[in-house]
Simulated scan of single mutants.
Amino acid sequence: MATAFRATSHGYRADLDAHERRLLSSLCGDVIDLLQSRTDEVAEDSAEPVTDEDAESTQHLRQDPVLAHFSAELAGLGGSEVLDAPRDEVLARLLPAASRDPEQAGQLRRLAEASLRESKIADLRTARMLLESSPVQLAEDQAPLFGRAINDVRLTLATRMEIRTEEDAERVHRAAVSGRVKNTETFMAEIYTFITWLQETLFTAMVEFLPEDEDDEEGRE
């Protein structure tokens, strides 16, 4: 049976059963695949037919490593002025717009989305690695990224389960604790509730472990 995250002298620790760790790791893997599908989608949308002139230019870049590096950096920004938001609802929530203005949002997305995707994928991969050990032991610098990865899994489930309001969250909680015969709805509700609980225990442990205010420390000197 899972135990809450708690602060230790080496960071944070939670005891999770093997099937719980496998489930979390599998869900992290699903989110990684989803984010990587967005990378493929952006690459396909920005691809253009290659002309003879383009081929000659590419050959020239290969001969100049400085220009090749600069070209790779530009390619990572996308080939158009703006980048459209993801069509998938989950990706749109994981990679939110940075502005309410559509054109500005598209420009900012072109500049920043690739970096955000890679950062999330890195967090999720590290979380999977940490979930391989029992108990789950997080160093202080690993706790925030593990929390971010679990939150992305939670957001993915919340979107798929159409949790948008407090009332929706309460509906899911009731389904999780109802004791009804298991079906897809109750199973997903139990997973979502478990991940929410695990995330909250980690954040609580992190807050409790924060150093005391410097002013308070000076007052005691």
Rank of each mutant, 00 (worst) to 15 (best):
T3Y: 12
T3K: 08
A7T: 15
T8P: 12
T8F: 15
S9Q: 11
H10S: 15
H10T: 15
R13D: 10
D17Y: 03
D17W: 08
D17Q: 11
A18N: 12
E20G: 09
R22M: 14
S25G: 13
S26M: 15
L27A: 10
V31T: 14
V31M: 09
V31K: 06
I32P: 13
L34R: 06
S37A: 12
T39Q: 11
T39F: 01
E41H: 14
V42K: 04
D45G: 05
S46C: 10
E48W: 07
P49I: 11
T51K: 09
A55M: 11
S57N: 07
L61G: 06
L61D: 12
P65N: 08
H69L: 13
H69T: 14
S71A: 15
A72M: 05
L74A: 14
A75Q: 09
L77Q: 12
P86C: 00
P86A: 00
D88A: 02
L91P: 05
P96I: 05
P96W: 09
A98Y: 01
A98H: 04
P102N: 01
P102A: 03
P102L: 02
Q107H: 11
L108K: 03
R109I: 09
R110H: 10
E113T: 06
A122W: 03
D123F: 05
D123L: 01
T126D: 06
A127S: 02
A127H: 01
M129G: 07
S134L: 07
P135T: 04
V136L: 01
L138S: 04
L138C: 02
D141F: 06
Q142W: 00
F146A: 13
F146Y: 14
N151M: 00
R154N: 05
L155D: 00
T156Q: 02
E162H: 11
I163R: 13
I163H: 11
T165Y: 01
T165K: 02
E167Q: 15
D168G: 07
E170Q: 15
E170Y: 08
R171D: 12
V172K: 00
H173F: 15
R174I: 12
R174F: 09
R174P: 06
A176D: 01
S178R: 02
S178F: 02
K182N: 07
N183Y: 06
F187H: 06
T193Y: 04
T193C: 02
F194R: 10
F194K: 05
I195G: 10
T196G: 15
L198S: 08
Q199D: 09
F203Q: 08
F203P: 00
M206W: 03
V207Q: 10
V207K: 11
D215P: 06
D215N: 13
D216C: 07
E217M: 14
G219W: 11
E221N: 06
